[in-house]
Nucleic acid binder design. Structure first.
Lengths: 328, 328
DNA sequence: CAATCTCCTGGAAACGGTTCCAGACTGACC
DNA sequence: GGTCAGTCTGGAACCGTTTCCAGGAGATTG
């Protein structure tokens, strides 16, 4: 059926070992042999079976990427960048969307473990112990989560929140809501932690509402609660949630930023396109994916090294959804 | 290192064959044996190596999904649905984003071919001949492209365009622009074809501009050309392009739909969130992915059968970006 | 010219499974 | 009790590739 190394060997009149050697290191073989082999490879359109190679070498050439929701542009951008970087380094990518379900996450990681050389776990929802168990078998790099012994790529959410709340404070806001994302999300806890700290420093009243799913629907569903909380500004867990808020506010004829200011998180493309354009705390999504792959490959080649924990900057982008506080 | 079938066999005190049998068909083995094996499996946390299994059985349990751009929410939704359906049927998914580059597409398909049981090609940019060559080795299903001998899932773009142009015609529009997407895109040609046909019937002047990349930037870049063409309405290749148009129109203080009406294609989530909310020709993105996987599995189990070509409906969703034609 | 060394090659084993085949054991039937 | 069918088991071969090892050929040296 498919053309194998033996077919090439037969056509070239050499052994399978020689074909293999030619492909791995053309210099290790006589020029005549190499020529024969290369000719046969071309003629048959031979391409090595990487799964079989993986069996021999213990190196599959595959990476696993696990994420909560591909419909979230944040993750789509991250995985796109990761995939591109992986391809550049000659790795293929197994993708798993777990639909925000931690149980699926565990199962999938186990099922895929033998087929990949390492995992990129985006915002993993599993417990620390489960992660430790995975890491025992396969190298992992965490994106958007930072715990003990794992290499990770995260965002300086506290600093982002500082920029955002400072911005709101300067506009006169003194009572601000935070719409919390999934309880099991490390980023959510981290954002909230940063926010609490700076709220204390600035003397801003922080009202926490939620938790909601990190989607537009989540934002829509909590918008009325936000309005009822008599705040003059609201920070959302992420841009999708913020867009949901904007949408519901618009439907209820609540002016943004006239009646209430809104700030998102992530800096997805859409945030610039809605009107009013969303003020947001932007992160470099591409870079998260790219750096994640780089870190994973380093971890794979040298599993003993001290895990690197990269923290990328967050940057407030002020657009049209924030303005002076409505006098109360 | 990793736990293999032999470890299980040793612990259970049986042969590897028996372990294999127990796992494949528990009824084929004595209850005592089964118990021992199952106990050992649990104890060791054994999970079969699917790549190794693939070598023996010729069935890898993997599907390849190839798409032009994951940052486009249309493809993200399609692949999310495909991945979910694949997982339900116990397949894992190899993902490849080719960044709109046909050369990458060819290379990737070849490289992955031995590792997957079939390919789902989303809006493939390769030539018909290349596709035929791929299909000789591995089953493929085309999404968003319909040619000769391949199973495919497409959208009734002509009918969508009919609905859209009828809508515009009823609003008094007589001169309408179409912003063309990538030249190599079958959907683009198909949409244009449908549009031309119905424009002829309705007596609407069709102005074709582009081609542009199917992105927001593409829309932004062509917006001024659209304005200069003195049309009262514009249909974009897809929603992203339409959003780009809206964005640029807004920046130039061109009123939508007061000065010009805008219609998109795909029905991505964002189209409902911008303001004015985008009138669009919506397709069932989830269903494309799901049906694509189903078709692929059917093709894999019965390669000889007549290829099924599913055409899904398109549905005009009228929102706020279309209105009566400005009298000229 | 023989001995050594280098370079290249083919054969064989291994990776982790699956599956075919032959043999051992059980129970039933005559 | 012997035969036979049927059930269950372990051994071996195989999937496609890599890698180790031994050996052969040619070149180099004494």
């Amino acid at each position: 059926m498919a053309v194998t190394i033996k077919d090439v060997a037969r056509l070239a009149g050499v052994s399978a070992s020689s074909v293999c050697r030619t492909l791995a290191d053309p210099g290790a073989v006589l020029p005549g042999t190499r020529e024969q082999v290369e000719k046969a490879v071309r003629e048959l359109g031979y391409y090595p079976n990487r799964a079989a190679r993986g069996l021999s070498t213990g190196r599959t050439g595959n990476l696993g990427v696990v994420l909560p929701d591909l419909a979230n542009p944040f993750f789509a951008s991250v995985v796109k960048a990761a995939q591109t970087q992986a391809r550049r380094l000659d790795y293929a990518v197994f993708l798993s969307d777990i639909d925000e379900d931690p149980a699926v996450e565990t199962l999938l990681i186990r099922a895929l473990a033998k087929q990949v050389d390492g995992f990129l776990l985006c915002s993993p929802r599993s417990s620390d112990d489960e992660l430790r168990a995975f890491a025992g078998h396969t190298p992992i790099v965490l994106l958007n989560r930072r715990i003990g012994p794992f290499p990770s790529v995260t965002v300086d959410a506290a600093d982002g929140m500082r920029q955002a709340l400072t911005h709101l404070h300067a506009l006169g806001h003194r009572r601000v809501a935070y719409v919390a994302g999934p309880r099991s999300s490390w980023s959510n806890r981290e954002r909230l932690r940063g926010l609490r700290a700076v709220a204390g420093t600035l003397g801003v009243d922080l009202v926490e509402v939620g938790n909601v799913p990190p989607t537009v629907e989540g934002g829509v569903s909590i918008a009325d609660v936000v309005l009822a909380s008599t705040v003059t500004a609201v920070l959302a867990y992420n841009d999708l949630t913020a867009l949901g808020l904007l949408n519901r506010f618009h439907a209820r004829s609540v002016a943004v930023p006239g009646d209430i200011s809104v700030i998102g998180f992530d800096g997805i493309l859409l945030s610039a396109l809605v009107s009013p354009a969303l003020t947001t705390i932007a992160v470099e999504m591409d870079r998260i994916g790219r750096v994640g792959v780089d870190l994973l490959l380093e971890t794979m080649t040298d599993p003993g090294r001290t895990p690197i924990r990269r923290v990328l900057p967050a940057q407030l982008i002020v657009r049209a959804s924030t303005g002076p506080a409505r006098p109360s």
